[in-house]
């Protein structure tokens, strides 16, 4: 069968057929795999929150091992004693919701488990001048209460995000960072233990209680991070923009929780 493949009509028919075949193939793949992918993402979030809290499967000093996928649901309900959602606008807390209240709420972005809150969408809401939700996950570390909060920002190529565990004085008790597409060997190293561990014990507030954040700083002459009062951790070589992104998201997103921690302090005293 000799077909004249140069004819315009043939070209158009071929293009349409190709789009239909490839399009339906992709749609079929995406929809049939969606439940699996969602489940994986859900477990990953639980693993990340537990990791920031200090609950993991780490064996040596270099590796990052999460609670295994078959045990993560159990570990999550066991260790995260409370999930709280704050509704904030312009730096003021409008409402504080428990998990049950949040799951019953009909508001946009609500009505699901607080750890599934889409931070990207919440940030967009705040940008449009609407109120946004801030989730908090409460657990225990060394018999002290820790509060895990999500953060999200921009790296060099794509989004970066993470979870930070704080005690009630806003001292970092654990972190987890991840990224969508930073350069392997450079910016992608924010996901390495030696970078995450540097944050442990760093303070976010000055003595006077002013929010300062933590800067990922180059040449701070403290590569093993012994100085916990300098509001700085050592940067990664060759990853300036990713490091700046980490500093920025810590500063921006953690500051949102400042009113909550101030209230906490007031109520405890």
């Amino acid at each position: 069968m000799a077909v004249n493949t140069d004819k315009n009509s043939y070209t158009i028919i071929f293009a349409v057929a190709m789009v239909l075949v490839v399009g339906s193939l992709l749609a079929f793949t995406a929809s049939s795999l969606k439940p699996n992918i969602e489940e994986n993402k859900r477990m990953e979030k639980q693993q990340n929150i537990l990791y920031a809290m200090g609950i993991n499967g780490n064996e040596s000093t270099g590796d990052i091992t999460f609670v295994s996928t078959d045990k993560v649901a159990e570990a999550f309900s066991e260790n995260v004693s409370e999930q709280i959602v704050l509704e904030v606008k312009d730096g003021k807390i409008l409402k504080e919701m428990t998990r049950d209240e949040f799951m019953k709420s009909k508001a946009q972005g609500a009505g699901k488990e607080p750890y599934l809150i889409d931070i990207k969408k919440e940030q967009a809401k705040a940008k449009n001048g609407e109120s946004r939700f801030l989730p908090l996950f409460i657990g225990q570390q060394d018999n002290k209460t820790v509060y895990v909060v999500p953060i999200r920002g921009k790296g060099l190529w794509d989004a970066i995000w993470g979870f930070v565990a704080l005690d009630e004085d806003m001292v970092v008790k654990g972190t987890f960072f991840d990224h969508a597409g930073e350069t392997p060997g450079l910016g992608a190293n924010i996901k390495q233990r030696y970078f995450m561990d540097d944050f442990y014990g760093e303070k976010l507030l000055t003595e006077a209680g002013v929010f300062k954040g933590i800067k990922v700083a180059k040449g701070n002459n403290d590569p093993v991070n012994n100085d916990k009062d300098d509001f700085e951790v050592d940067a990664l070589a060759g990853a300036t923009i990713t490091g700046d992104g980490v500093s920025a998201m810590i500063k921006k997103d953690l500051k949102l929780y400042l009113p909550y921690f101030k209230n906490l302090k007031k109520n405890n005293n």
């Binding site: 077909v3 493949t5 140069d6 043939y10 070209t11 071929f14 293009a15 490839v22």
Partner: peptide, 19 residues
């Protein structure tokens, strides 16, 4: 190879890789 219209072959190749 025998049925790809030569005018749009680059796009067809791109679609195959992307898919």
């Amino acid at each position: 190879r025998n049925i790809i219209p030569s005018k749009i072959r680059i796009i067809v190749q791109l679609i195959v890789v992307a898919a």
